[in-house]
């Protein structure tokens, strides 16, 4: 038997495939961004550059090149790692408040799932959008670092790839987690107890060997540490094949776990 639908339809709506549906969701983020980019331009683009100037050049001027900086100037040594911590800090807002708002304040997700889009596609669109924004902001950061003469060579471009991977891994997990939040009260805690320590204590600004060894395992589970190892290793040619595979596998696993959970939590929240 064929499906019993009501034949005479005047509706123009159709169901699009999952990839196109995800892109339509990305498209709507882009439209929103084109109108509202000013609200985040400073924190996304200029902020990281100021950080580079202050910590890389300002603070770096007080640091003599040595073993801790791989024999490089402090700022050259810092750039690949700063790219990773920037990725994570930028991903933080887009994965918490922006997502929470679409559930609770602006409720735009609820509007989207009343259309042929599914909650899973809305999630995929959000994550893809976050990754695209990260890619753009990191490219700008890298270009500025290049203009300031803080890059060691073309290999630093790999840092862009790995920073993007680390940022996306973090974003996938956090977006999924945000979908389970009923209030925004935990986001401050996430920033203070996860993002800040992840920025400061995973080897970006000073070697982890300066920290007590019991803190190391905590760093090893963070996407920041894996991202920094990858991005410095690739930029300075010190990355072995095993380490490369291991770090990439860990970050990819985080992306997958975040994607699976995100899909599930978005569906649980939006289809009740």
């Amino acid at each position: 038997m064929t499906r019993t639908t009501i034949p005479a339809s005047r509706s123009t709506g159709v169901v699009v495939g999952p990839v196109r549906a995800t892109w339509l969701s990305v498209e709507s983020h882009w439209l929103w961004y084109r109108r509202n980019w000013r609200s985040s331009a400073f924190s996304t683009f200029l902020g990281p550059v100021l950080f580079l100037l202050a910590m890389g050049f300002g603070f770096g001027s007080q640091v003599r090149p040595g073993a801790a900086t791989g024999g490089l100037s402090y700022v050259e040594h810092l750039v690949p790692a700063l790219l990773v911590t920037t990725a994570i800090q930028n991903a933080n807002f887009d994965s918490t408040y922006a997502v929470f708002s679409a559930f609770k304040w602006s409720k735009t997700y609820w509007g989207a799932v009343a259309t042929p889009l599914t909650p899973g596609q809305v999630f995929a669109g959000q994550l893809t959008w976050n990754a695209l924004r990260l890619g753009a902001s990191l490219a700008v950061f890298l270009a500025v670092a290049g203009l300031l003469g803080a890059l060691t060579g073309p290999a630093v471009l790999w840092a862009w790839v790995f920073a993007l991977l680390a940022g996306t891994a973090f974003s996938a997990v956090v977006v999924a987690w945000t979908a389970t939040r009923r209030t925004d009260s935990a986001f401050n805690g996430l920033f203070r107890f996860v993002v800040m320590p992840m920025t400061l204590f995973t080897g970006a600004f000073f070697p982890m060997s300066d920290l007590p060894s019991w803190t190391w395992p905590l760093a090893w589970i963070t996407p920041a540490w894996h991202g920094i190892e990858l991005s410095r290793g690739a930029a300075f040619g010190t990355l072995g094949p095993v380490a490369l595979l291991g770090h990439v596998a860990y970050l990819s696993a985080l992306v997958v776990v975040g994607a699976v959970l995100g899909r599930r939590y978005f569906t649980r929240r939006l289809a009740v």
Binding site: G13, L24, S28, R35, S106, T115
Partner: peptide, 24 residues
């Protein structure tokens, strides 16, 4: 829906256009 879930940071026209795109 009972509560409006318009995207208040877009224009009226953009709200309609974005939504229409979701329907392919």
């Amino acid at each position: 829906p009972q509560e409006d879930n318009l995207d208040t940071e877009l224009t009226a026209r953009q709200n309609l256009e974005v939504y229409g795109r979701y329907f392919g």
